[in-house]
């Protein structure tokens, strides 16, 4: 039983990160109907910037408490990612807003490859060690273990998600975002500056992504130029699972996908009598994606119809 509890806990930690990244995908998709392939790379850049700032500051500012350094690093990561996302939208997506559907998707793929390789040129191909932010001493709850950092991941993710929901539902900006996603033209007629709202969507998603990047890198104490790609794909899967374009759906989808992967990898061997094993962990994610898209393209909580493509 404690093993199952542990697997659920593992799944929740994994899932909260997926959910945080999935929000970035789902916001952009909700407004533009575009899969922003480069979002996973924004997450990676967030981790890399935080790492670079931390290395720089610990080298130069001796005696400063670590909390200050970490906060500065995260702030820098958020700022850079926001600027980057703004630039990506401006350069690669905005000129193609009225082009055929495939065009922005192809530039998004190109952007993802470009960012990955630029990061590789800047930071090299080596795996980088991410400094320890919290004590790794695990706590034991009912036979399952959890570290401080993992608690932080769950709490921070939850707080950010609640904050985002509040932003979208109760502020002027949020109302404008919802209006834009319903109908860009009408929103424009109603006095909403559509370009600005779209930029804001990208920038908010990137900020969440930057935090997610730092959390992931800290949790595994490793950062690498390719860390964002697979994470991004998984997060997108989560967004689709929950119902793309729906914020609550992204969160639910993220947590569910985390649980599916962790419990799947943990028990598939026993269920199939050893025929399938943990090597099919990624297959679960993609299979879920295909099944959802084919049988219920609106996802669990989505109201949109895929046919509008």
């Amino acid at each position: 039983m404690d093993i199952l509890l542990q697997q659920i806990l593992n799944g929740l930690v994994l899932g909260s990160v997926y959910a945080l990244v999935a929000l970035g995908y789902t916001m952009v998709y909700g407004i533009l109907g575009l899969i922003n392939f480069a979002h996973g790379e924004v997450v990676m850049i967030g981790a890399m910037i935080a790492l670079a700032v931390m290395t720089l500051l610990t080298g130069t500012m001796v005696g400063v408490p670590p909390v200050v350094i970490v906060s500065l690093a995260i702030a820098a990561a958020i700022a850079v990612c926001m600027a980057l996302a703004y630039a990506i939208e401006r350069v690669a997506y905005r000129p193609l807003r009225n082009a055929p559907r495939l065009a922005p998707l192809i530039t998004a793929i190109g952007m993802s490859i470009l960012l990955q390789n630029v990061a590789m040129v800047i930071w090299g191909r080596q795996y980088k060690t991410f400094p320890q932010l919290f004590s790794t001493q695990p706590h034991t709850i009912a036979g399952a273990t959890i570290t401080d950092l993992q608690i932080v991941i769950i709490v921070v993710s939850a707080a950010l998600m609640v904050g985002l929901l509040a932003l979208v539902n109760f502020t002027r900006l949020g109302r404008a975002m919802r209006a834009t996603s319903e109908n860009k033209t009408i929103a424009g007629l109603m006095g909403v500056n559509v370009d600005k709202i779209i930029s804001a969507t990208f920038v908010i998603g990137a900020a969440l992504g930057a935090v997610a990047g730092v959390l992931v890198a800290a949790n595994y104490s490793i950062a690498h130029y390719s860390m964002g790609f697979m994470l991004g794909l998984k997060a997108f899967t989560a967004a689709v699972l929950g119902g793309i374009g729906n914020l609550g759906g992204a969160v639910l989808g993220g947590l569910l996908l985390g649980l599916i992967e962790s419990i799947g990898a943990g028990y598939i061997g026993d269920v199939t009598g050893g025929f399938l094993g943990s090597h099919y962990q990624d297959v679960f994610a993609f299979l879920v994606l295909i099944l959802v898209l084919v049988f219920r393209p609106t996802g669990i909580m989505g109201e949109r119809v895929a046919e509008r493509a």
Binding site: T237, L293, P297, A309
Partner: peptide
């Protein structure tokens, strides 16, 4: 039934599944 970007994502998943197998 799928079009556009949904199809792109499903085919991507399919490609990865084949490779993993």
């Amino acid at each position: 039934r799928l079009r556009g970007d949904y199809l792109a994502i499903v085919t991507l998943g399919f490609g990865e599944i084949i490779r993993i197998f």
